[in-house]
Design a protein around this nucleic acid. Structure first.
Lengths: 210, 210
DNA sequence: GACGCAATCACATGAAGATGTGATTTGCTC
DNA sequence: GAGCAAATCACATCTTCATGTGATTGCGTC
């Protein structure tokens, strides 16, 4: 028997989902609250559910803030977002906060039921549009992360040395060139990157700006 | 009509999938190759399919390398991985390379068909286990990224100054303290982090190791 | 109230870095 | 083959950094 909890402020939707899920013979849905605060209070006094359906827009604390708090105190609860928001920022923040799935609100009741089952079996239910956004999160970096300053390969070597925390002397040894050559390269690097200290070069490099 | 291509070296599996998909009245599957090289050759001479099912373990070039090449020349092709591998590294690399979905090979034919439909409709089909791994990719950073060295807040301020590329003098000015105080803090920071240069502190910080 | 710790400041010294002004060699392009 | 960029090296000078030693103040704890 899967224990399901709901945090949703729209009474109609909440009741509808609760009744439907509670009606299933492999699920029980008793805890249905309209705010994170109430749910937290409930959790303090009752056995924790296995799965929590959570809205984002809620009175008081937002669902996303709620995820963090709930996951911190009850890490074993699987949180499934059920919301109208499909902007990358909210999706991303929810997942980072600890949600294990993300459904859009137009999802049908049987699909919600399936998703909950999927979740307890180790899946991560997502509406197709959401899945696509999540995937794009991986694609983007690859194509966008090329501000590509035009450092020569030798200059890039030197930058790598700096990032590794090496001194000029150590860099010179690593590439078997003189320390004055290292200085010369660094001078050129500074000009190209418009900086004037090792520190800035390292920072730029590690931020992916080189 | 959805044009589907297949790159899969196991003849039995390849033929099975091809026949099944080609049998569907909304799909056509003519191009079925057993290597990326062959598929690239085929693509050069024929109209590109809408979706490409791709294995990872292949003779010659790996499927993951293939994704990049194919996506580069034919960015409009949606690539759906169909493989036995479920290790995070392969999943992650596939997605970064440009795959739009990732199915495990035990997926049934009807499910593969549905996934292809889902894909062309803008979804990102994934087996539940895969979805979970992808989601965990977001969770992990949040929970693990706390190596939390115990720098005091003042020390953290100084580190931020260093990361911003400031000199000791500039840091002193920013926080309105003497340069010798900055030196003192930095000495302590070096001790705590077991480093001995600005560069290493900046690198550590930007790598999230502080 | 003794103790530890964070935060502040001081003085000193040797090492590392930043910058200026050169120069030579190699390889590519027009 | 003149012109140019990249890579190499040299010497000089001034600034910044790393490190040692030491001190004062304030805050929380046992």
């Amino acid at each position: 028997m899967i224990e399901v909890g709901i945090v949703e402020d729209n009474v109609k939707i909440r009741n509808l989902i609760q009744r439907y899920l509670d009606m299933q013979d492999n699920m029980s849905c008793k805890a249905a609250m309209d705010s994170v605060e109430e749910m937290l209070e409930h959790l303090g006094e009752h056995k924790a559910p296995d799965v929590l359906l959570m809205d984002i827009q809620l009175p008081g604390m937002s669902g996303i803030e709620g995820i963090g708090l709930i996951k911190k105190k009850y890490p074993e609860i699987e949180i499934l977002m059920l919301t109208v928001y499909h902007d990358s920022h909210k999706i991303f923040n929810s997942l980072v906060a600890g949600a294990s799935g993300y459904l859009l609100k137009h999802t049908s009741l049987p699909e919600i039921k399936e998703s909950i089952e999927n979740l307890v079996e180790g899946g991560a239910p997502m509406s197709p549009q959401i899945a696509r956004k999540v995937i794009e999160h991986f694609n983007k970096p690859e194509t966008e992360k090329k501000p590509e300053s035009d450092l020569t390969s030798r200059e890039q070597d030197i930058v790598n040395g700096l990032v590794d925390g090496l001194s000029y002397k150590m860099i010179a040894d690593r590439f078997d060139i003189s320390i004055d050559t290292v200085r010369a390269h660094i001078r050129n690097i500074y000009k190209k990157l418009h900086v004037n200290s090792k520190a800035e070069v390292i920072a730029k490099s590690l931020r992916g700006e080189i």
